[in-house]
């Protein structure tokens, strides 16, 4: 990633995310009140976060790869089932992944 690309991502993401927040304070309520829009909007974070888990944990470039990261994600899943708090989940996943990375 070039420095220009990095700055563009930081700048554009920040500008758009802030504009979206401010938009909510100015838009007439009926514009966003459509039930279909609300239903889809509620599902968007779930779809994107799910895809991000896969893309970050099981994919390298454009192929599906099971490596040390998958071990980390598996441990994270187990910790979430055990109702562990967020920091424990993240640190547990990192620890498991690092362990597999070094054993390999």
């Amino acid at each position: 990633m070039s420095s220009t690309t990095a700055w563009m991502v930081v700048g554009a993401t920040s500008a758009l995310c802030f504009s979206i927040k401010l938009f909510g304070y100015y838009v007439p309520e009926r514009w966003l009140a459509h039930p279909r829009l609300q239903r889809v909007n509620a599902l968007i974070p779930i779809s994107l976060l799910s895809a991000l888990v896969v893309a970050e944990g099981l994919v390298s470039k454009t192929s599906v790869v099971i490596d040390h990261r998958a071990a980390g994600v598996a441990v994270a899943l187990g910790l979430l089932f055990a109702k562990a708090p967020f920091p424990v989940v993240v640190v547990g996943a990192a620890g498991a992944s690092a362990l597999v990375y070094h054993l390999h």
Binding site: P45, I46, E56, G57, L80, V89, G95, Y101, H102
Partner: peptide, 20 residues
């Protein structure tokens, strides 16, 4: 990768997804 940071990111997404 040596510190597992590359796995911490998908784990964070899973942690953000879970309560939803």
């Amino acid at each position: 990768a040596s510190w597992g940071l590359d796995a911490a990111v998908p784990a964070a997404f899973l942690g953000l997804l879970w309560p939803r």
